[in-house]
Design a protein around this nucleic acid. Structure first.
Lengths: 199, 199
DNA sequence: TTACAAACCAAGCGCTTGCTTGGTAGCGTA
DNA sequence: TACGCTACCAAGCAAGCGCTTGGTTTGTAA
């Protein structure tokens, strides 16, 4: 009954399958409503065997979050590398973040956003530090866009507004719908640099 | 130890105090991590006494959510009533929604956004129906803005993007910071109708 | 003063939870 | 063959959970 698809940037080791199943369940039911017995059943092992791989249920959550942060930070970096035009950089960042949130790492990313407070305090600190690297990339590009005259608003505020638009997409965006990820990215880009002149 | 401030549009009856305390706890710890004993302690009663007022813990959550939806739908309606200019209407809506999310009903609104899946299926339906009335107001105004030439994008998409920007504000906006609610509202408005010409 | 309902208390039941424990199967190496 | 390591199972414990129960206090009105 359990056919654990491997996604979210995890490998196909027992540990990786376990993380992938956990991410899916955490997203669908939430961390607290997912039991270790659920995760075990989905992975095809006994619940006690989980603790051979992880020290606690919370440790599983923490690992899922750290993996997805690192994976998507790398993706963000790739999106700006070698791109000179600030606006093109920004378009790349928006696409990359949307890909994270509604694309291939959707499960783990949603967990990252919604189950934050289920992390132990010390783990929150570690995740926050990893998150800071991610945000640095965004702010550098947004400053470049403003310096080039592409927008006039405060980059910090704009980043927060973009973050809201992309995160919220997990609640409504349908990849099978009429609007694809690039189309949505363009819509969000227009909220930042304005709409192009009429056709 | 327990001094239950009354907020979120609840009255000061035992029932209202209970709802207000529950909203605060649900926001701070999440629904699943809040025990009926926590709510009882905060309200100043025994945990069993909760069930004199509500049939279940989930019933408390549902009541909190329905109250805040109705309260803020009324606020939204007031914001557009008697206002002719579509852009002025839109500004009023953005301000009203921000007031809901980071202002006086912040606790209950955050719960509405983040604890949705903790509702029983039948209660989700009811809340969804109430939510539809709320969204109707937004879409009417956004269509008016577009018809008046204030923007060119699809009102449905724009509403979703605005919803993301306002909801996400609960994660970072500080009322004591340099930016006040009206200032943030103006920033969001500019994401929709563009920035005004340079000074 | 009596009557009655709403509001509450004290105790605890039954169940689920995360996690532990002691033991075993399979496999590569010497 | 013997060793040792990783991965796993079967069973169950202690704690915490939502909720129930039977009885008591409190406020209000005739």
């Amino acid at each position: 009954m359990a056919q654990p698809q491997i996604v979210n940037g995890m490998d196909d080791s027992p540990r990786g399958k376990l993380l992938s199943a956990a991410a899916r369940l955490f997203r669908a039911r939430g961390f607290d409503r997912t039991t270790v017995r659920d995760i075990a059943r989905e992975t095809g092992i006994q619940s006690g065997s989980l603790f051979h791989h992880f020290s606690s249920k919370e440790d599983i959550l923490f690992t899922v979050m750290m993996e997805v942060i690192r994976f998507n930070t790398a993706r963000l970096q790739e999106a700006v590398q070698g791109v000179a035009d600030p606006v093109a950089q920004l378009r790349g960042l928006i696409r990359a973040e949307l890909q994270s949130i509604v694309g291939d790492t959707a499960e783990a990313m949603t967990v990252l956003v919604y189950e934050w407070r289920c992390l132990a305090a010390e783990h929150q600190e570690q995740a926050l530090a990893a998150r800071a690297v991610y945000e640095r990339i965004w702010l550098d590009t947004l400053h470049a866009v403003r310096d080039a005259g592409g927008m006039r608003a405060d980059p910090v505020i704009v980043r927060r507004l973009i973050n809201g638009m992309t995160s919220w997409a997990s609640n409504w965006f349908d990849p099978a719908g009429p609007l694809d990820i690039d189309g949505l990215a363009e819509q969000i880009l227009h909220r930042v640099i304005g709409e192009p002149a009429s056709p």
